[in-house]
């Protein structure tokens, strides 16, 4: 017999979450044997690089453009921010190639694949607004070139790349938030559905 407590949204939500993602699935002790390959390390490499990007981004936000342009420590943190982004995209592309050739959308993993695709797109937009927010000649060149492309799509009416304040806010608030939330969702879906098994070989047995 169900009670009032059973109908509370907190109870229903907790049961649903616990059913879909019990603790042993969220933080498993072991992984399937096919995960013992270097091709499976690039997802976590991407996330590690993202952590450094976010950390150095916090430091850059604390001190501001004058610091990252003029002091040696600021230059160093700015470089760390740039190079961790380079590693982030490098690892993400290798991860994407690996998952594409594994057919990682198989076995009801469409949402996992699609959150990865959208995270990739959000990351490109985040990187672009970052290049537009450098506040130097480089960002001036990039934004004056990009404005014509974006205006030709009609998006320039509400996304003005020549507006430094708007680009900086997109770069440090909206897009990183989207990228982090999407990454978390992507990882949770991997935990719920598990890592995609390899294609079966000719004898019909999974490798």
């Amino acid at each position: 017999m169900s009670t009032d407590i059973d109908h509370q949204w907190t109870t229903r939500l907790r049961r649903k979450v616990a059913g879909k993602l019990p603790p042993e699935k969220l933080l498993p002790d072991t992984q399937p044997s096919y995960v013992s390959s270097w091709i499976y390390v690039f997802g976590v490499t991407t996330m590690s690089a993202l952590a450094v990007v976010i950390g150095t981004g916090f430091l850059l936000s604390l001190r501001g453009p004058q610091w990252w342009h003029e002091s040696s420590v600021g230059h160093f943190v700015n470089s760390l921010h740039l190079w961790s982004v380079e590693i982030f995209f490098f690892a993400m592309v290798v991860h994407l190639w690996g998952k594409f050739f594994m057919g990682a959308w198989r076995g009801g993993r469409t949402a996992t694949w699609m959150t990865g695709v959208v995270t990739f797109l959000a990351s490109i937009a985040t990187a672009f607004t970052g290049y537009a927010s450098q506040s130097n000649f480089d960002s001036q060149w990039i934004t004056t070139q990009a404005k014509d492309g974006i205006n030709s799509t009609g998006a320039g009416a509400f996304f003005n790349v020549l507006n430094l304040g708007q680009m900086l806010m997109w770069h440090i608030v909206l897009l990183p938030l989207a990228a982090v939330i999407l990454t978390a969702l992507h990882v949770l879906l991997v935990r719920i559905k598990g890592v995609v098994p390899p294609y079966a070989d000719k004898a019909g047995e999974a490798l």
């Binding site: 013992s36 390959s37 270097w38 091709i39 390390v41 690039f42 490098f90 290798v94 190639w97």
Partner: peptide, 16 residues
Amino acid sequence: MIATFVAALLLPFPGR
């Protein structure tokens, strides 16, 4: 990136 991808497929993983 291509070299890293190929190396990741071919190099043995420690403990495998």
